[in-house]
Design a protein around this nucleic acid. Structure first.
Lengths: 194, 194
DNA sequence: CACTGTATATTTACACTGGAAATATATCTG
DNA sequence: CAGATATATTTCCAGTGTAAATATACAGTG
């Protein structure tokens, strides 16, 4: 058994996490195109082939970065919701958090949904994105809309909400949404069951 | 004045268009990562620096490809709508066309909205994307919803529709939408003014 | 026709990329 | 201590986009 905190098992100690954090750093400051294997490794102070042991390839590292992104994304949404009680307000707050995360971290957000860069079938990534989805779905529970009697109504409602907020986020990032309206400004009026 | 059809003014003749078409070809068969300057040029049979004269850089060429993509995208939507008269059916048909284009041409669609690859401020691109938007907006005209009396109600309605359809398309491509439901399955029930 | 200017395309060179393979080093296990 | 294993480096390679100098084809003019 070893020291728990000051544990530095191998050469670097915690290279795996360090690489992910360095990647996010680069993403925030210089954007997706700057996110090269060599740039990430250099920031941590290791050779550009060091990541291979932990992630297999650049694609693996990017997938890990996206996974961390989903974690932060979920937390971002939760944060704005926790002190609200009214259902509609909670819904709008979560969706506003979704959009604001995309606007504040456009490069990371783009990466998170990029089939080009990430392995979308990766179990860890799926798990993380599911958590993000669960925040929205949890709040949407009890929501009522026109097609409440169709099969899988709940799932379809969640999918609609997710489409709205994700589409608005993407369009906003790409520069097609014009002035940055809050999501509540375009949301239809859903009703909750008493 | 020269021959109109067999016109071959310069070395190649119509390199600009040929490059765009070759790019789309590669996009369809091998996806975005394969879309290199050298690959596109090789397919047309010119050196990899030839595109520079017409597009300045790879980014310029990709922007032109995306512009062509928007043209096809608009046509795709129009096609399914033209023989319908009922407003709601027309709306759903246009949106279904939007999503189907994304599913049938995922690489091209991704490129069209990628700030990473395209110059989103490019006038030709803006013009082309505006045409695509206009198809949806045109059909949405007369649509009535909850906030019809708020300022810019029409614009907000369009933005909502665009967000829904675009978000659903993106999620579908990325593999997050599960089974490929038609867009009508998740659409709320808008009403038209008599 | 020849001459000139310009648009078009090629050649060459360069800095950069990710990945493969062989090597070195640190840590763990016995 | 010795052997095995996980970790990281070094070196090399094929590939990328771009810049600069060069070559070629065309258009317009005398």
């Amino acid at each position: 058994m070893q020291d728990h905190a000051a544990r530095r098992p191998y050469h670097h100690g915690d290279l795996k996490n360090a690489l992910v954090l360095a990647g996010i750093d680069i993403l925030e400051t210089d954007g997706l195109p700057a996110l090269s294997l060599r740039a990430i490794a250099a920031r941590v102070g290791v050779s550009h082939t060091a990541p291979k042991n932990h992630f297999g390839s650049l694609r693996g590292l990017l997938t890990a970065i996206a996974t961390e992104g989903f974690g932060r994304h979920a937390a971002f949404m939760q944060a704005g919701v926790s002190d609200l009680s009214e259902p509609q307000a909670r819904l709008h707050a979560a969706m506003e958090g979704y959009v604001r995360f995309a606007r504040d971290h456009p490069a990371l957000f783009s990466l998170m949904f990029s089939k080009e860069h990430c392995e979308m079938t990766d179990p860890a990534l799926r798990m993380a994105s599911a958590e993000s989805y669960a925040v929205l779905a949890g709040i949407a529970r009890g929501l009522e809309w026109d097609k409440a009697d169709t099969p899988n109504a709940q799932r379809r409602t969640e999918l609609l909400l997710w489409s709205i907020v994700h589409g608005y986020a993407e369009l906003s990032i790409a520069g097609f949404a014009g002035e940055e309206l809050p999501i509540a400004a375009i949301m239809p009026d859903f009703r909750y069951r008493a």
